[in-house]
Design a protein around this nucleic acid. Structure first.
Length: 259
DNA sequence: ATGACTTGCGCGGCAAGA
C-alpha cells in the first residue's frame, strides 16, 4: 500500500503536475491539501480518468482537502470538536486493504502566525482537537495513517536556521510541545523511523531563493498507528517536484506499507 | 543588481501562506 500526501497550493494550478504524479508514482492513496477551491471546481474528471475515486472537502479561496484512492472509500468530513469551525482542513477515509482496512486522515493544520494572536490560539485549539480525535481512533487498533501538512517543524534538524524560527508559529516551543503530545499517544513519525538525517525538507518558500539555497522546512508528515508502523517499508520525499515548472511550494512525501 | 513569490478574487491591490 503506497500512501502519499501533498500540499498542492491550489489544485487548479496543479492539474498537469497532479496527473503526472499519479501516472509516475501510482499511489494507492493520495492526500491533498490547500485545494483553494470549492468541490465543484476540483478537477474531478481528470483525476477519475487516472482510475481514482475522489473525496473532497472544499472551501472557496482557502484551505480545502481531498483524498484520492484507487479503492472505494467510506468518508467522514471535518475534524470533530468544534461545530462552529468553518475551515475545511480535515477529511478521513476508510479504505479496504486485503482482509482489513486502512484508515487515512488527511489534514491541513493551521499555520497560526503570528504568535500571540487569534490565529495562533486557533492553531493550538485545532491541535487539541486533533489529539482528542487521534486518541479515540487509536483505540480502534487499526492501520491508521494521519498525514498532511502539519505546519509543525518537529525539531532543529528540520529547519535551515532554527534560531531564526523560534518566534514562528511553525517552530515555537508550544507548537512542538503539542506535536510531541500527539506523537506520545503512540504514533510513529514515519520519516524519523527511517532516518536521523537533517534537512529532510518538504517545503521551500517561493521567496528569497529558498529552493536554490536549500532553505527548507520539514512540515509534511505521515504519522502511523502501531498497526501501520509494523508494516512500514520505506519513506520517500519527492524532492525533484520542487525543481519542475510551476511547482507547489511543498513536495509530496509518501510511504510504502507491506501488504 | 535600484532588486524580495504565488495564489484567489476580480480588475486594484490586498490577504494569506510559512
Amino acid at each position: 500500500m503506497r500512501i502519499a500526501t501533498w500540499n498542492v497550493n491550489s489544485v487548479r494550478q496543479r492539474v498537469e503536475a497532479l496527473v503526472a504524479y499519479l501516472r509516475e508514482v501510482k499511489p494507492d492513496v493520495l492526500c491533498l491539501q490547500e485545494l483553494k477551491c470549492l468541490e465543484e471546481q476540483f478537477p474531478r474528471l481528470e483525476v477519475e480518468a487516472e482510475g481514482y475515486n475522489v473525496a473532497i472537502h472544499g472551501q472557496k479561496s482557502y484551505n480545502g482537502v481531498a483524498i484520492l484512492s484507487r479503492a472505494p472509500m467510506e468518508i467522514a468530513i471535518g475534524l470533530p470538536g468544534d461545530g462552529s469551525d468553518e475551515q475545511s482542513r480535515y477529511i478521513e477515509a476508510v479504505i479496504p486493504w486485503g482482509k482489513t482496512v486502512a484508515r487515512v486522515g488527511c489534514l491541513y493544520l493551521p499555520n497560526g502566525n503570528p504568535l500571540g494572536t487569534d490565529k495562533y490560539a486557533y492553531k493550538l485549539a485545532w491541535m487539541d482537537r486533533l489529539i482528542a480525535h487521534a486518541r479515540r481512533l487509536l483505540g480502534n487498533e487499526e492501520r491508521l495513517i494521519l498525514c498532511g501538512d502539519y505546519n509543525v517543524i518537529p525539531d532543529a534538524r528540520d529547519v535551515y536556521d532554527p534560531e531564526a524560527w523560534l518566534g514562528d508559529a511553525l517552530y515555537a516551543p508550544p507548537t512542538r510541545e503539542k506535536f510531541r503530545e500527539l506523537l506520545a499517544l503512540g504514533f510513529t513519525d514515519s520519516l524519523r523511523a527511517t532516518t536521523d538525517a537533517a534537512k529532510q525538507y518538504t517545503f521551500w518558500d517561493y521567496q528569497a531563493g529558498a529552493w536554490p539555497k536549500n532553505n527548507g522546512l520539514r512540515i509534511d508528515h505521515l504519522l502511523l498507528s502501531p498497526q501501520a508502523a509494523d508494516r512500514l517499508q520505506s519513506v520517500t520525499i519527492d524532492r525533484d517536484m520542487r525543481a519542475k515548472d510551476k511547482p507547489s511550494d511543498h513536495v509530496p512525501i509518501r510511504i510504502d506499507l507491506r501488504d
